[in-house]
Simulated assay, not measured.
Amino acid sequence: MEQLLLHLRNLGFTEMESKIMVELATKGQASGYEVAKQLGVSRSNVYAALQRLTQQGYVRCGEGEPARYSVLNPEELATMISGRVQASLAYMESEMPRGGPVSPSFYNVEGDRNVLGALIRQLNMAEQEIVVDMWREEASLLRSELEQAELRGVRLLWAFDGGNAAPATYPVWPPLGRDSKRTDGRKFSFVIDRSWCMLGMRYEDGSAQAVVTEHPVLVDLLLNHFAQEMVLFELEQDMGAELEERYGERYSKINSKYVMHDPVDDGEEQAQ
């Protein structure tokens, strides 16, 4: 029930209107007084909402005293709402003013639903190329959109962590100082058509945070990072044994040169 009410509100109905429509659909037909009594709200509010719904055509008012109301069946409702939404979208697209150029900016997206929603919208608009770097758990949530993009002829370049075929894991940079940070998340990044990118983190509790931008600096950084990681991955696949034989322990030392330890921890160790 709550999900149905949520979706009705998403379609533009108020909370009162949504509850009335569901109540009428459940009962078949009812008077305003009966609806108000069942919902436990004032009759004046119910009659005002019924008047709006009747004027818009979503609810029918029958003859008689007291008047009895009924809501359109689900198929009729869906057809009417869809037609009006499509007409409004078409008008908005053609008549919305188009201003001058906008400087690229960064904006945050909070919440798993909002992050995935923003990604899905952009994936569905991809025309040429999608570069994906994420874990398989998150990739599975976007499988349909990625497959549809490939069917449209969009080039898909991907790196999935969390499986046997995944590239080598990235070095972990410890935080500077003692500020506690969440460590249960999985990072991901997308670059679409080399002009839009999202960089974010999805956590075990289902929450998510991301940064979205069209700024060319971050777009280039993510593309270069992806290319370097994939080149290194392929080199290690082809020459892993040779690299290990040639560099031995020095191979790990090269990496440790650039992934520094927390200086506070180093100071404590030296003090001990």
Rank of each mutant, 00 (worst) to 15 (best):
A67Y: 00
N10T: 10
D265C: 10
V59Q: 01
N73L: 04
S207Y: 00
M198R: 01
S82V: 02
Q56K: 10
Q128G: 04
H225S: 15
R98W: 07
R84D: 12
N124F: 00
P263M: 02
P167E: 00
M96S: 12
H7N: 15
V71H: 04
E23L: 13
L221W: 08
L89A: 14
V71Q: 04
E17I: 05
R250L: 15
R246S: 13
T14W: 04
A78F: 08
F190H: 02
D112C: 12
S189K: 09
V259F: 04
E249V: 01
A227N: 00
N73I: 01
V131A: 07
N45G: 13
A78D: 07
K37M: 12
G267S: 11
V85Y: 09
L77N: 05
Y33H: 10
T54W: 01
L39Y: 00
T14L: 07
A90Y: 08
I20Q: 01
A149L: 03
E63F: 08
D179K: 15
W135A: 15
N164F: 11
L141D: 09
A168E: 15
M92I: 12
V35E: 03
G32Y: 11
Q122Y: 00
I120E: 08
L142P: 03
E17M: 06
V217F: 10
Y258A: 08
Y170G: 10
V41N: 03
M92E: 13
E75V: 14
E138H: 02
S42R: 08
E145M: 08
A139V: 05
V102Q: 08
F188L: 03
A90V: 09
L4W: 06
Q55G: 13
L141A: 14
A241Q: 14
S82L: 13
T26Q: 08
L141N: 09
N224W: 07
L123I: 12
Q55D: 15
G162M: 01
E15C: 06
E15D: 15
L222N: 02
R113N: 10
Y258H: 11
G83V: 02
T54V: 03
I192Y: 08
Y203A: 08
E244G: 13
N255P: 00
N73Y: 04
E145Q: 15
V109E: 05
Y251C: 09
K187T: 11
L11V: 04
S31M: 00
A227T: 03
E145W: 03
S189V: 03
L4C: 13
A210T: 00
Y107V: 06
M96H: 11
E65D: 12
Q29D: 14
G111I: 06
L199R: 02
F13W: 09
L176Y: 14
A30H: 05
V231T: 13
